[in-house]
């Protein structure tokens, strides 16, 4: 009897928490379909009385959101692909290849994890300027192309690769690169998928750096474009909600599809970190 009550209580709380958590997102979707001014009434409406696609059409036609979407997608995918490859190579080398100064080098990298990115931000901007990359997608990508955290995660995973497997291949005369390509990468696949998800989400959601680097609205990423839009259309609640939906949708989809490996990654980063 007591157990039944406890079960009811726990589930009530769980549902209540879920409602609180989802309300902002659900309201965002709902309001994005309301006609202009429809969300600004008292009491606030929960569902659109007369649903409309008008704001989405407006965003894609007049406000060039497709362009910003394309910019974001290009930057995010490029960063994800490059960073996974680059980090995988380095993570594997730290885990499995023997070379002098390996442990010292790794320790230096680990120590650098505590440095917040802001301390290098101003010089990085001037460097990006010097390279002529201000106001280009490449300038946005630069800080994300390699990540110490990514190298660390891949190294932790790669430690479990049995040395015998690699040595056997060496005895067969395979080159180190071939070993990496045909043996190591397939073994690393789960962690690479996880890291790709991490990288995708963080590159897509990144705000401060693109805000600094990009000045021309034709180059804006979605979050920067959205922050720009809210400066101009703050009174257009429904339009802003449609913009928010479009910004959040891709990461939500990626997360829902990849959630198992993503959550694994979060736990791995915490347990071994």
């Amino acid at each position: 009897m007591k157990k039944a009550w406890r079960s009811i209580l726990v589930h009530a709380l769980l549902l209540f928490g879920a409602a609180l958590t989802l309300t902002p997102l659900l309201w965002m979707v709902s309001a994005s379909f309301m006609p202009t001014g429809g969300a600004n009434t008292v009491p606030p409406p929960i569902l659109p009385m007369h649903p409309t696609f008008a704001h989405y059409i407006d965003l894609f036609t007049r406000l060039h959101l497709a362009r910003d979407f394309g910019n974001s997608l290009f930057i995010t995918v490029t960063v994800t692909v490059i960073s996974v490859v680059v980090n995988a190579m380095a993570g594997y080398a730290f885990a499995k290849l023997r070379f002098g100064a390996r442990d010292q080098l790794f320790r230096v990298l680990m120590a650098a994890l505590v440095i917040p990115s802001q301390v290098g931000m101003m010089p990085l901007f001037l460097m990006v300027k010097g390279l002529g990359l201000v106001n280009t997608p490449w300038g946005v990508m630069i800080p994300g192309l390699a990540s110490i955290f990514g190298i660390f995660m891949i190294r932790q995973f790669a430690l479990s690769i049995p040395d015998d497997l690699l040595d056997a291949a060496r005895i067969d005369g395979a080159s180190e690169f071939r070993i990496f390509w045909t043996i190591v990468l397939p073994v690393l696949k789960p962690i690479l998928v996880t890291m790709a998800t991490f990288s995708f989400l963080s590159a897509w959601n990144d705000f401060m750096w693109p805000l600094i680097v990009l000045s021309d609205d034709a180059k804006y990423t979605l979050p920067v474009a959205l922050a720009n839009l809210v400066g101009e259309h703050v009174q257009d609640t429904e339009l802003m909600m449609a913009g928010s939906v479009l910004t959040v949708l891709p990461v939500l989809i990626v997360f829902l599809v990849m959630q198992r490996s993503y959550i694994q990654g979060v736990l791995m980063g915490s347990v071994k970190g």
Partner: peptide, 21 residues
Amino acid sequence: VQQVPWSAAHEKLVTGFVGRS
């Protein structure tokens, strides 16, 4: 025509200058 919100206009103009854009 590019529309820049007042709150970000100053930054954007200087970045534009720095980035030769």
